[in-house]
Computed example of a mutant assay.
Amino acid sequence: MHSTTARALALPALLLLALTACGAEPEIVPATVAGDATGTPAAGGRTLNLGPDQKRVRAEKVDSIASRVPAEIAEDGRLTVGFSGEGSPPLTFPATDDTTIIGVETDIAQLVADVLGLEIEPQTSSWENLFLAAKSGKYEVVFNNVTVTEERKDLYDFATYRVDQLGWQVPENSPIKEIAKPADIAGLRVSVGSGTNQEKILLDWDKQNKEAGLKPAEILYYQKYGDVLLALKSGRVQAYFGPNPSIAYNIAVSGGSRIVGTFSGAGPDLQGLIAAMTKKDNGLVKPVSEALNTVIENGRYKEVLDRWGLGNEAIPESQINPPGLPRQGA
């Protein structure tokens, strides 16, 4: 398996796993906000620290869990964690020094490292290479908005820590109170990204409405999220259906809009789950899951999610290798 031929054969399959059903990283347009010289914007009565000195929420070591970390991983005292270096607030993105990687993923990884009694060693890579590095063991764990899928479970182990969520965004002064079912979008002007999973869900909702004799939605497409925000502000669009993290971040730093509903990124039949990813059967996934459950129980986990405006993506407990998105073509 270490031959050049084997690596060449494995690469296409790994890239397919990386590129399908994978919580794609949305384009984020930096918000223009009032803030201080350290890059800490103030919006809606809250502050977000975007500087390199994050003053992260920390956790205490739990010896009984730390002792279960495989010796070959624990021996250097470090936990090598893979993140995307491409930037997707509030998941992972560069701080104001353009070097330090910050975001909800780095904060949760820090909590896990703390419980395991290890020093976090962050590494950044492209999205596709995160999978290759995890499979080879170069990265001991990946925290990067990775959705659990049945194909991925063949090669990796997973410990869940967030739900995979889509959100409905409306202007702050919108009369819309909730979007939870197809009938709620009947007759509305709505925007969605072309070719996305949320577009498939939206088109299915619109089809159901038409079959039920309800007014069809007017679906508008924009290439950039910044254009969507302008359309919402001007009234050209009444609601936008997109990745919950990017919407929550925009609301946190800019205000002017709100979330009126969320929906599973896996569609109507399964709640998609985001998870820490480790090499298959390397023995690390169980202590990682136990560490996550520790910080869920003691409240540190909630502090981190609330810090980044993602409280609505919390899970009650971390699971190991739960049912994932179905296999392609299944």
Rank of each mutant, 00 (worst) to 15 (best):
Q208A: 13
G267W: 04
G324P: 11
S84W: 10
A31P: 02
L16K: 13
E25Y: 03
P41F: 00
P182E: 05
S136I: 08
Q198C: 03
K153V: 01
H2W: 14
Q123P: 00
F143I: 00
Y301S: 11
E119V: 12
D53W: 14
Q238A: 09
G85L: 07
G82R: 03
S254I: 00
Y222K: 10
A276L: 06
Y225T: 03
I185N: 04
R327P: 07
A6R: 07
R236K: 11
G117D: 05
V33K: 06
S84I: 12
E199N: 02
R7W: 10
W168G: 13
T124Q: 07
P326E: 04
G35L: 10
G167H: 00
G23Y: 04
S174T: 08
K210C: 07
V190K: 00
E105F: 08
S289Q: 13
S246D: 06
R152F: 01
Q328F: 10
A8G: 01
N145R: 05
D63H: 02
G255H: 03
D53H: 13
V304H: 01
A212C: 14
I247M: 12
G39W: 05
Q198Y: 11
G256A: 03
L220I: 13
D76A: 11
A183M: 09
T20Q: 10
P89C: 03
G44Y: 08
K224E: 11
A8W: 06
E211M: 03
N293L: 10
D114M: 03
S257E: 07
S318Q: 09
G226W: 02
R56S: 15
P243E: 09
Y161V: 05
T100W: 03
I251H: 12
K279M: 06
L48P: 09
G235N: 04
D157L: 09
L132F: 02
N312I: 12
A95H: 01
G235W: 03
A43K: 00
P52V: 05
G117P: 04
V81C: 11
P216R: 01
L305Y: 11
L155S: 11
V295A: 05
L16E: 13
L232A: 09
A186I: 06
P70R: 10
G272Y: 02
Y156F: 15
D306H: 06
R300S: 12
P316S: 13
L132V: 12
E75W: 05
G329R: 01
I251L: 13
K302S: 13
L91C: 11
L91N: 14
V69C: 07
L16D: 13
S67D: 14
V192G: 15
T47A: 07
E317G: 04
I247H: 12
T99Q: 09
